[in-house]
Nucleic acid binder design. Sequence first.
DNA 1: GTCTATAGGTGGATAGAC
DNA 2: GTCTATCCACCTATAGAC
Lengths: 191, 191
Amino acid sequence: MKNVPVIDQIIDLAQSLIQTRGYNAMSYRDLADQIGIKTSSIHYYFPAKEDLGRAVMAHYRQGIRSALAGIDAKTPDPRVKIERYVGLFRETVQSGCICLGGMLATDFTTLPQGVQTEVRNFFAENEAWLANVLETGRTSGAFMFEGSSAVKASAVFAALEGAMIAARLFNDDKRLVSAADWMLDTLSAPR
Amino acid sequence: MKNVPVIDQIIDLAQSLIQTRGYNAMSYRDLADQIGIKTSSIHYYFPAKEDLGRAVMAHYRQGIRSALAGIDAKTPDPRVKIERYVGLFRETVQSGCICLGGMLATDFTTLPQGVQTEVRNFFAENEAWLANVLETGRTSGAFMFEGSSAVKASAVFAALEGAMIAARLFNDDKRLVSAADWMLDTLSAPR
DNA sequence: GTCTATAGGTGGATAGAC
DNA sequence: GTCTATCCACCTATAGAC
């Protein structure tokens, strides 16, 4: 058994609740009751909900950053990279969640400004990584597409986010897989 | 000036607020204040929030149904149909909203059961229409793709929903257009 | 149908004891 | 650091006058 610091328990549970229920349906009371502390203890670490929201999104971004670095370290093949990237999404949807970024993007207008910025940065970061993979793949001949790789990357990322939302809606992760397969197929050079 | 019945004002405003802020961030007080009535008057028409939620989603579905019938009546060309369909999404995103179905799909776990059912039906209805257009297009040679048209339709719909969310996030409706262009391109006969 | 008044619950947040 | 106690704003919902 590990002795997980309370602050980490708060962040982890808050992330999970936001991914499942959304920002506005996650409350200090939910967190306190499930962790077994009082709401005032959470306010000690995160005086305002905005502080907690930013911390959760920052932690999530750091996790993605590590995962992307791991993918880059394990394979140079752009196609395999995308496959592994899709694997990250599949893990999330299999646990009954959608992406934190996708959830907060729909909650966007109700978010404190500091959280809004984190959400936009999350999107930009994913799209930048994808754009690089796509551009590398096009150069090597693994991929074939026209136009800006950045524009294509944003379309790919949005398609995955949408597929994730639909997959959870119907409790059917094949929706994510088939959407990803289609994308990879159309990005590949014709046989 | 038209004399819009109060019940219609409620439904219209509730729809707009949910599309902008989400189900849980839309309140009876918001509605009452903006319309200029009291919350108890809204409860007269919609005793529980679930009743209002179902009415809004049902009204939205009816609007989409009319729009799809209008598209079907105006052109038999599958490609043009998709283009007009995308036009519906663009109108929404240009008014600073995302699709009601997409919003409620992320709010899904917090929704009353009756609203959940409406959301699933909304997705199914759009996908069924898309599947039919895709299948017709494949038969006529306008489209070229492998596998089930229903599976492809769900991927197309999810991609549009995701693109919409991202387009609003960055206040950039070109994101929706480029995603739609890419889809139409890959559905068309190979280059 | 619309209102006043109110109930009971939950939201984020703070002061101060320990 | 964690607690008790409390604040006030907001939420959905209902009873009953008009």
